[in-house]
Design a protein around this nucleic acid. Structure first.
Length: 466
RNA sequence: UCCUCUUUAGCUCAGUUGGCAGAGCGACGGACUGUUAAUCCGUAUGUCGCUGGUUCAAGUCCAGCAAGAGGAGCCA
């Protein structure tokens, strides 16, 4: 008698006739007057639940089995057999059942067997992993996460755990959360009346990171190929279906590489992880396709089988100018593209992910490599239909003189970037990288439209429950 | 931060011209059944988001507030 995972039953790890023990939770109970009850039990190991057939001859049939409702936790022991009924391959003929926990007041149990709105589930974030949809999202997310690590490991990348707490407030990617142990009710003051951060824990102002890129660059400039994969924090008041205050980001950084290398890496990575999901989570993807978004599987196949379209910003502007579509924001060279423009390019003009490259320098960050035209930088965005920017990256400016010029142009202080500038002083190399929003990837892959439903406990402005 | 929409039973939602608070599902009780989101019969369930106003009368009209959702901006 072995304690097993339900997934291994469907993987035929145990021959029919085996004695098995399954631990899990009740999805539904159906009683038959033939003297048996049918339980569907899930343990999270795969999408499908297992059916357990419980005879009324068990001594706790009336006291326990007859009182089982959705959400009760049980152990069932019995023989694995081919199902006598239609609808499932296998079932367990139960000889012993133990109830660990009943559901107190089933009438008010928030997760009934019926369908709930995704917003309702979000308000019960501690119970929603019990649902089909969040269970499936969780397994796909896990699969994507492992696929990312596998991809980089197989290609010789080192995973760098860059710091969560940063003393640099010049990472340049948005508003930051302050990290402090100072007593907010009684702040220490300098002689000038400002807050005296010398008395704070790190003896300076500190924040939560908005990007691991600058730190990752230091390791790329010695280990050649590295990546970070960790939490990222942005204190922006964004109230949309694709922003979180706390999210996970994948940031590869490659040395002796240019923008084209980074673009190729992005394409290879996306194709690799999509293949992994199709192969390893076919059950969950079938569910998403059936119930959430009928294009879920097709979308992955499109990514895998297509060559990503590359397009220069300058050409994109021409396409937008010459297309018949009316935009709210007028198009001209030099503007930052708006959602409506990116959507048109990815969804209508191409209909697949598109890599936009070489943006005007004035709308991009200081560290991006200035192109020979002197007007554009070697930046790229990967735009996915339906979700927008899923990857943003660039070749980095490796020339110290050019970097300093850009810092000055943008009103930034050289002295804040001492260690970053050192990389250009001592054996500088051309290098490039990008950031992939992990939750945006999970959202895109599953078809679950709100990013708050693809992370366990979403943090957003005005919302940090659980 | 701006614009739009939503808020009625445990859940999903109807509620007409201002006139007795409704349905489906779930829960509970029963019937039936190797069942499949079972089916059939029955029962109970309400601060109509909150506060104020108009009216003989407000779920419905008006004002304010709150929460949620979608879009914009910012970005991943």
């Amino acid at each position: 008698m072995s304690k097993i995972k339900i997934v291994d039953i469907f993987n035929r790890k145990y021959p029919t006739g085996s004695q098995v023990t399954v631990h899990g939770w009740i999805r539904t109970r159906r009683d038959s007057k033939a003297g048996i009850s049918f339980l569907t039990i899930y343990d999270g190991s795969c999408f499908s639940p297992i059916q357990a057939v419980v005879p009324n001859t068990l001594e706790n049939y009336v006291s326990d089995v007859q009182n089982l409702t959705a959400g009760c936790s049980v152990k069932v022991v019995g023989q694995l057999v081919e199902s006598q009924g239609k609808g499932q391959e296998f079932e367990i003929q139960v000889t012993n059942i133990v109830v660990y926990g009943f559901v107190e007041d089933p009438d008010t149990y928030p997760i009934s067997a019926k369908r709930h709105s995704i917003e309702y589930l979000r308000e019960h974030a501690h119970l929603r992993p019990r649902t089909n949809i969040i269970g499936a999202v969780t397994r796909v997310r896990n699969c994507l996460s492992h696929a990312i690590h596998n991809f980089f490991y197989d290609n010789g990348y080192n995973w760098i755990s860059t710091p969560i707490i940063t003393g640099s407030n010049c990472e340049g990617a948005g508003d930051m959360f302050r990290v402090s142990t100072l007593d907010m009710e009684n702040l220490p003051r300098t002689a000038q009346g400002g807050v005296d951060y010398k008395q704070d824990f790190f003896a300076k102002e500190t924040f939560l990171t908005v990007s691991g890129q600058l730190n990752a660059e230091t390791y790329a400039c010695s280990l050649s190929n590295v990546y970070t994969f960790g939490p990222t924090f942005r204190a922006e008041n964004s109230h949309t279906s694709r922003h979180l205050a706390e999210f996970w980001m994948v940031e590869p950084e490659i040395a002796f590489a240019d923008l084209e290398d980074a673009a190729q890496l992005a394409e290879n990575l996306l194709k690799y992880v999509c293949k992994a999901v199709l192969k390893e989570r076919a059950d969950d993807m079938a569910f998403f396709t059936q119930r959430i978004d009928k294009n879920s599987i097709k979308r992955l196949e499109t990514i895998i089988n297509s060559v990503f379209v590359h397009m220069d910003y300058t050409d994109a502007i021409e396409i937008l100018k010459n297309c018949k579509k009316k935009f709210e924001y007028p198009v001209q060279w030099g503007i930052d593209l708006h959602s409506e423009h990116e959507r048109y390019l990815a969804e209508e003009h191409i209909g697949a992910p598109i890599i936009l490259k070489n943006y005007p320098k004035d709308i991009k960050a200081f560290y991006m490599k200035l192109n020979e035209d002197g007007k554009t930088v070697a930046a790229m965005d990967v735009l996915a239909p339906g979700i927008g920017e899923i990857i943003g990256g660039s070749q980095r400016e490796e020339n110290l003189e050019a970097l300093d010029k850009r810092l000055k142009e943008m009103g930034l202080d050289q002295s804040d970037y001492t260690w970053y500038r050192d990389l250009r002083k001592y054996g500088t190399v051309p290098h490039a990288g990008f950031g992939l929003g992990f939750e945006r990837l999970v959202s895109y892959v599953t078809g679950v439209q709100n990013i708050r439903d693809v992370i366990a406990f979403p943090r957003a402005p005005g919302s940090a429950d659980f």
